[in-house]
Design a protein around this nucleic acid. Structure first.
Lengths: 175, 175
DNA sequence: GATAATTACTTAGAAATCTATGCAATGGGA
DNA sequence: TCCCATTGCATAGATTTCTAAGTAATTATC
């Protein structure tokens, strides 16, 4: 059980290139609702940082970000229907269609029309995709490690509880 | 690498429509790196939940999600150049161009070529956009409140520290 | 002062998403 | 058995975002 301090030393830049110059400029006010305190903004920033890194690290393997989520599920459950895949990955079906089309083009999957139910398309990984598994999972692990650098285990646990709860809170709301 | 319990109380559905049926199905394994423990996945889910709600709640005002971030900055600093806007909003410049084009079309901004430096385009809110300010900020506040329902203040504080640090960690990494 | 480098914006093109619709296979009731 | 609702996949079209590359205005260098 590691336990180390946290102490946010970085100011959390939004654009990693944009050296500085934007805070401290005119118009400090935003009293009405400062983005730096807004969970939504914090989540958005973090999301983009994760996406950016994921994209860069899997690109060398010829895998795009949108394909990643599907690979991940298929490695553990080959032969699912598109509907099942959509649910498990958490995407709408048209998104799944697009991702699978690109995966078929790049030789990561095959699609086979269902025998029993001819509406269904069962999705199977190719050998190529299966071979990528361990390397790509290592990439995912490394990104998580990079992200969690220097964060105390108990803070991480609290983080997971909170963000999971937030998502659930928001998912419960229809409008 | 830390290893700790987690206790994820909510099942964190991905698709709010997909009632259930996917956890508990076959193939529980994913031993190699369970998504429910991956900060990246948690952040992605939360991000989409936030986006979805934001989109729905501002649509009635005729404002799209991509316009929102710019409005937010402009309410506090009217007349910025596109470059400055990009930096403050945290978007790449082409993204800014697209957002501003749509905002000009919907009558939220005017663009005026700079007098001093004729490369620059200064961006000004219209009266219409200025009038939207308080209502839309209230929307933002309400979403945050919804998200944070039932979460203890100290957990929230830990959450903010952690996610800010994660973003900073990731931003520091180039590849 | 002419040329080179930089800066500000733009275009082009791709990817990842969504909502709304359409079409075809299936299955349950009358 | 036949109709119709449901289910599974697909298309269309919109939005948000990126990277790469282009153009025009400004500034710096010789």
């Amino acid at each position: 059980m590691v336990s180390l301090d946290l102490s946010t030393p970085m100011p959390a830049r939004k654009d990693p290139k944009a050296k500085a110059s934007h805070e401290a400029t005119a118009s400090r006010r935003e009293v009405e609702f400062p983005p730096r305190l807004s969970s939504g903004y914090l989540v958005r920033d973090a999301h983009r940082a994760f996406q950016r890194l994921l994209e860069r690290r899997i690109a060398p393997y010829g895998v795009a970000r949108g394909q990643w989520y599907f690979l991940r599920v298929l490695w553990n459950a080959d032969g699912l229907s598109q509907r099942e895949l959509s649910v498990r990955v958490g995407m709408m079906e048209p998104t799944t269609v697009i991702a699978l089309r690109s995966m078929e083009r790049s030789g990561l999957i095959r699609r086979v029309r269902g025998d029993d139910d001819r509406r269904k398309m069962r999705v199977f990984l190719t050998a190529k995709a299966r071979r990528l598994r361990s390397e790509l999972l290592a990439v995912a692990r490394s990104i998580t490690e990079d992200a969690e650098q220097g964060i105390a285990a108990r803070d991480l646990a609290a983080f997971r509880r909170v963000i999971t709860r937030m998502t659930a809170n928001l998912d419960r709301i229809e409008r």
